[in-house]
Design a protein around this nucleic acid. Structure first.
Lengths: 266, 266
DNA sequence: CTTTTATTGGTCTCAACGACCTTAAAGGGA
DNA sequence: TCCCTTTAAGGTCGTTGAGACCAATAAAAG
């Protein structure tokens, strides 16, 4: 932080140089490289997918990794994350997408080459456009979020942990916020909205109970009068809805049965 | 993050230097100063208090600020935060205290002197020892967490926002975790535990309903057989409890009435 | 035309919560 | 001393919401 005025009682940490003047003494602290990592989720063909890029260089050459990049001198982590999101997904209207800071990963040895502190974000994309692998070498792809290893083995660096944290965060937020609409296109059916919960949580929900719950929450969704869609061809056409203005889901829509996520992450 | 292999299709960001070798090219990115900021809460005489330090130097000289400090080259943000917590509170058994990463604040102009990226933490301390102002100049004190300005005016830097975020996070976590015991001494009464909720939420809770709720959650608290305490002198002596092993509170103990926190912070 | 699939709506039961009341055990004040 | 206040502890009761289950509708697939 800022404001370490005190001398720490005999402990020489170099902090005392912090406030001695208008600019900092570069020898008073260690500069770090700061990056952003993105866990971009979408739903494709009834499964949760995650956007990954393939590394071409060592370390972890040939392994999949989360997209991301360096913070530029004039931008915040949020702006950097949204910029990266636009670059990696190729989406035009990145402004409206849900982007949420997860946490910061700063273990000293998380990158073998140097000290890198990374601010991780979770992002939700409604429809998954083609993953376009940027320029030449790198490949980008939507891979199904699998239990355990992501398709071809574990991810580079500590990205498996970041991805797991992101998934847990998203799953938890579905319980008490109206976040689920961020996975849906502008016009969606209640079945599609329910599928978001089922796919992220990995459980089945009762369609009738889900419907009542969603409609009982003011501002969660608004029906589009007179509109309906043939879901995939089969079944009765469903009414179309759009996202409402509400952001909180009260009372919450709790996951069925599962006591709680295993790992203590309170 | 790591792994920016791609060329970003004509955009020259300097990222391509990232993977070209075993070490990074220092010219490929901007190094930042990384710090930790701590929002340390405790409950004193029935009010929520926050640990603050008084700045002696410009900028924001004379203003109160959150304690914190630089990350050292060999430690993670969590370790740095715990070290700062021990230094600032003077507590011996910092290992058992609740320390939780909040989020990272990285606005380019948040420190007028240079670019500082700060990882913020929220910490809970059961009993508040004397705030010991480190060495000489700096003063540290427990100030009541007031609605609006913290005692003598706003805090330095963006610390008012960090503090508000920390308070909202703590209040929310009380709803669905057993975190409240972190505010309590090793042996506590149910009235003391209830006061934690009342003080943090700023509401009154029904003692009987609260009691049933807490005791109905397995592992939240365990009664210490035969022990009781005269709370403050008045009233019937209360049974003593200690924290149980549970970490999740299921079903949650929701705040009364208040629709939700005002600001959309989903 | 029959089957299949999905939406939409209804009913019923149980658990949980909130409001309220009663009793027990202490201290303070007149 | 007696009475009142205070806090803990325990109980009742009505309302609410969630979950399980059933039924009707409407369209496509065979």
């Amino acid at each position: 932080m800022q404001g370490r005025d005190k001398d720490e009682g005999g402990e020489r940490t170099g902090h005392e140089a912090y406030d001695n003047g208008e600019a900092y003494d570069r020898r008073a602290y260690e500069p770090f490289a700061v990056t952003v990592d993105l866990a971009v989720f979408t739903i494709r063909s009834g499964r949760l997918h995650i956007l990954l890029v393939e590394r071409g260089q060592s370390p972890y050459a040939g392994r999949w990794a989360l997209p991301g990049g360096f913070l530029r001198p004039d931008e915040s982590a949020e702006r950097a994350a949204r910029r990266e999101l636009a670059e990696e997904t190729g989406l035009a209207d990145v402004a409206g997408l849900h982007l949420e800071q997860l946490r910061t990963y700063s273990e000293p040895d998380r990158d073998p080459r140097m000290r890198v502190v990374s601010v991780a974000f979770a992002a939700l994309v409604p429809d998954a456009p083609q993953a376009h692998g940027g320029g030449d070498a790198a490949r980008a792809a939507w891979l199904p979020y699998g239990t355990g290893a992501q398709g071809p083995g574990p991810l580079a660096f500590d990205h498996d942990r970041i991805l797991a944290d992101a998934h847990e965060r998203i799953g938890g937020k579905l319980e008490y916020t109206c976040l689920a609409t961020a996975f849906c296109p502008p016009r969606f059916t209640l079945g599609e909205l329910r599928q978001v919960y089922e796919v992220v949580w990995g459980t089945d929900l009762d369609p009738a109970n889900f419907r009542r719950k969603v409609l009982a929450t003011p501002g969660f969704v608004e029906q589009i009068p007179g509109a309906s869609r043939l879901t995939g061809g089969r079944g009765k056409p469903a009414a179309l809805y759009r996202a409402g203005g509400a952001v909180w889901l009260h009372p919450p829509l709790l996951r069925p049965t599962p006591e709680r996520p295993e790992g203590p992450r309170p």
